[in-house]
Simulated assay, not measured.
Amino acid sequence: MRAFVFPGQGSQKVGMGKELAATSPAAREVFEEVNEALLQNLSGMMAEGPEEELTLTQNAQPAIMAHSIAVLRVLEREFGVKLAEQATCVAGHSLGEYSALCAVGAFDLAITARLLKLRGRSMQAAVPVGEGAMAALLGADVESAKALAAAAAQGQVCEIANDNDPTQVVISGHREAVERAVGMVKDHGIKRGMLLPVSAPFHCSLMQPAADRMADALAHTPPAAMALPVYANVTAARVEDAQEERALLVEQVTGRVRWRESVLAMRADGVESFVELGGKVVGPMVGRTTPEAQVTSLVTLQDLEAFAKENA
């Protein structure tokens, strides 16, 4: 059994998709459709920068999705490897959950791009710049991270945002609280705390205004039936009903990304192989969570060609 998985924010970089667009009509079609949906030349920004524009949340989120779906379309149309035939389920890290839902037909490409543009803008607007922060805790498990966050909060918000793998947990909240947590890591047996270069404190209760906006947008965006089940970030459980998944996307804005648990749930359900589309971010997390699983990352044409040959 195989899962196709999709990366989240932080996997963007200038030049993403450039090679695919230059050589593949299927990839160009994806990028052109996203440009048209958003009324901006996002693919040009992805290919040439500037980096500070691409890194903005409202651009990075649809860009990462577009790249993942372009990789998938090339795999399907030009190499004949179909998602529905090769995978038994999908999952995505944070915004990658939207990429996964697009891949299985819950939302079409244009709708997914517009939802992610709104999600990025809403998350950025939820907290004034400079008032929030996130930090990666290296060598931390959930329990030690939870204790650290509670000790550092001191009346402010400091919460677990991402449970990525057995060696990395991310916290999010008010900047002062997160900075206190970074300074207290040794007291909680955590190897290192590192502030992340993000513009907002994602996946914590400070994101409630963004969750409200996404609830309204998703209420007016009924999803279609999904071709494959998705493992949801906030429950780390298999979801087959598109309406249930739509509600979970709202919870996801303020909720914890339970990626480690999602990987373990997929493994428990028989998944032995994980294929990351459009990045090399969540694949390594999978490898650290379940070293016995087979992990493949597909980014370049050479990656796609090799995968297609192996799965002909």
Rank of each mutant, 00 (worst) to 15 (best):
A150N: 00
I171H: 07
M266P: 05
A110C: 10
N233D: 01
L95E: 03
S144I: 07
V71I: 08
G155W: 04
E251P: 04
L138P: 03
A227S: 15
M134P: 14
M207V: 03
A47W: 12
Q252T: 10
M207G: 00
G189V: 03
R180E: 05
A37V: 08
A26R: 10
V129N: 04
S11H: 03
R256I: 06
A293S: 15
Q154K: 15
R73E: 12
L38Q: 02
G96W: 00
A265C: 13
S43G: 07
G193Y: 06
G183E: 07
A91T: 09
T221N: 00
E179W: 00
V253K: 14
F31N: 05
R192K: 11
Q302D: 10
E48C: 12
M266A: 01
A147Q: 14
V263T: 05
V34E: 04
K18F: 08
V34Y: 00
V34T: 09
A60R: 00
Q124G: 13
P223Q: 11
Q294G: 05
R238V: 11
A150V: 09
F307V: 06
F274K: 02
L39H: 14
M214H: 09
A210G: 01
G193K: 02
Q168C: 08
A215P: 04
A236Y: 04
A265E: 14
I69T: 13
A87D: 06
L116K: 10
L101N: 11
V275R: 03
A135C: 09
P284M: 02
R288W: 01
L116C: 09
S199T: 15
D212F: 04
M226I: 13
A308S: 15
V286G: 02
A293L: 14
G183A: 00
S122T: 12
A215S: 08
I64E: 09
Q294A: 10
F79E: 06
L83R: 05
A63I: 14
I190K: 10
G10E: 08
S11C: 02
F31D: 05
E276A: 05
P222L: 06
E292A: 11
Q156D: 14
A103G: 05
F6Y: 07
T290C: 15
Q61Y: 03
Y98E: 05
L195K: 06
S172A: 00
A224D: 12
G193N: 09
A237F: 04
E19C: 08
V263I: 05
R246H: 14
E48I: 13
A211P: 04
F79A: 13
V253H: 12
L148M: 05
A70V: 11
Q294E: 09
V230A: 15
G15A: 04
L118C: 01
E310C: 09
V30M: 03
N164G: 01
K280Y: 04
R246K: 14
V282L: 07
W259L: 06
H220E: 15
S262Y: 10
Q294R: 14
C158K: 03
L115V: 11
E97L: 05
G139W: 03
A21F: 05
A126H: 12
G105V: 08
D241P: 07
V295N: 08
A152H: 06
S172V: 07
V198H: 10
V295E: 05
R121C: 00
A133Q: 10
E244V: 14
A135I: 10
I69N: 04
L39M: 07
G278Q: 03
T289G: 02
K191W: 03
